[in-house]
Design a protein around this nucleic acid. Structure first.
Lengths: 194, 194, 194, 194
DNA sequence: GATGAATGAGGCTTCATTCAT
DNA sequence: TATGAATGAAGCCTCATTCAT
């Protein structure tokens, strides 16, 4: 990749990060191109040099966030450890994302009403890919009798749902540290699976 | 209350119901006053006789739904049954609401993207009141040793979070009926608490 | 038709007339909704109460102009007179339109590049209907041996083209009156046909 | 002229040709600087090294086309042949231009929608010069009794108008070839003049 | 000479809101 | 009470133009 391409890539990422931030503060509809640009001291016209339109920009926000998260989870899956251990790590990671990259992560949650048919599909695919990593470990755990449940898909939904919800109430000045939360959640989640 | 006042009250409710319907289909931003009125064969101008503005109307939608839900939950709490039984009923009810009043519930989930400061507070209060009902039963269950957990608040968060998440993936034409989902969720949730 | 419908119809016509005027001064692209509205002391937002969008408005401009012109020509065709006489009247009428209702008439000339497929077709149909009236008389004249040409379609094109061109150079303070022009054109056009 | 100047001149011509092409395809407003540049594998910024602005570029397109056309017509006038023969050739040439340089010719037809005051005048002059060539031959033909009309100016208007109109309906896949059209038009136009 | 990047004006469109009737 | 009509703010997007490199 040439230097100029890297530069443009960097700028794109900056814009995406700005967009992620604004969108998570205000939601898709209330996030304006103007504000996204202002965050970077640019004018809205400039955004269209990098992205075809608002939908395209938001679409790429999703992509970026999901790809990153998938890569991280994959590492734990590849490591040599029991499925329970893998799942614990994945839960901790997901929670960390959900809390620390709240804005970034939040985005995955409601793609409908935002995207046209064309773009909805690839997003759902990536989202499924992410969720599939959890399924993978849960199913493996069932095979090894680490877990004993009849409805692995629904169990996974429960896992993700309860973790995504954390951002709704998590308060950095609250009585629990992130580490404690990660621990408690992992424990409780495993009670579901066993 | 005079007859004319009753009439007005009735009309208000009709409008709220229409608004709830439209908002649940399209979300807050995409629900237009025009469409809400059209549903009732009125014109949008008329809505302003009954509600100060769109936010006010949607606020009252929200109120109505939450009050209803609270009343419904309260019935189960007042009934003579074990705390486990109470909680099972409450879970079923919540799931039903989450699916059928999807977008209204969304407003409850992320009220800050919808409401201004003024209206945010009463909403959060009602929301806490709603969540408190779950706490109440969980704590009672701990006292009677039906449940055995150290972190009742977090457990409640997990409950609500996982249930709210259902609307993200629930598909009326999917392989599970609502009743089955309610059953499975109740079972799995109770594994957390026990 | 109810009174209110008539009122709205009248307003629509006013807007169409304004649009026709602006479009003919500036062309489709340079004619702004703002200006069209300003002409009527309205704001551009109001236009959308009457027309779906700019394309729709301009489309209806075409319709209106063409329908009117067709009706007028039809009268001469229905009258009892020789085809040559009919054609003379039609030529005079067309010239009168082209000059006096310049703005209105001009509009028919270049529908392409302005309209989407959907709207282009009905316009071309109406345009053909208008042109067809000339064809009709020319063909009748050939049958009665009043005219003697091999290419009636092309002759008609020549007729219309040369007449439409008048607005490019006609100057009300020029040396010829409209009546003289009508006479000369009719004479010259008939030389083509004979 | 230095070599570098020649190079610049050559580039300018390339750009003009590209612009003529794009403008003929899309019309003035829809032809973007971007596209004109892309045709030459340049970027739009570069165009401003050669032309002051879009209007200036299009103005020079117009000039080029008209100058070319004038030169071509002049050849036929200078040739040794009857005025009728001259006019036939001129008609054929004009038709060819009208069809192939469609949009450029359109700019000539309605320059006031394209150009600002400053540039309008030189264009009108050139346009008159062009039209004057037709007048010249018509008048000469009247002197030699080849033509017998009282209103040579109006006859010329009819000629040009009917020919300019061809682009409104000409279809390369239609039933007539360009050559046939040229022939038929020339025949019919001469009927007017005789 | 050329370009990548940014800008800003301007246009279309939507829609909550107002108000006379 | 209800409505028809109008408004105006705000948002998205395009594109000619500029300018540092």
């Amino acid at each position: 990749m040439k230097l100029s391409e890297k530069k443009i890539q960097k700028k794109k990422e900056d814009i995406i990060l700005s967009a992620v931030k604004i969108v998570n503060e205000k939601g898709y509809q209330k996030a304006t191109m103007e504000e996204i640009a202002a965050e970077l001291l640019m004018t809205k016209g400039s955004l269209y040099y990098y992205f075809k339109n608002k939908e395209d920009l938001i679409f790429q926000c999703h992509e970026m966030v999901l790809v990153q998260a998938i890569e991280e989870l994959q590492q734990y899956i590849n490591a040599k450890q029991s499925n329970e251990e893998k799942l614990r790590e994945m839960i901790k990671t997901h929670i960390q994302y959900a809390i620390e990259k709240k804005e970034t992560f939040n985005m995955i949650i409601k793609p409908d009403q935002t995207f046209s048919e064309d773009q909805l599909n690839p997003i759902l695919l990536k989202r499924n890919e992410y969720a599939g990593l959890f399924d993978q470990v849960i199913l493996a755990g069932i095979k090894t009798a680490e877990f004993t449940i009849d409805e692995p898909k629904i169990a996974r939904m429960i896992l993700l749902g309860s973790m995504n919800w954390i951002q709704q109430w998590y308060n950095p000045f609250g009585s629990k540290t992130i580490e404690e939360l990660q621990q408690i959640y992992a424990d409780y989640m495993l009670k579901v699976l066993k």
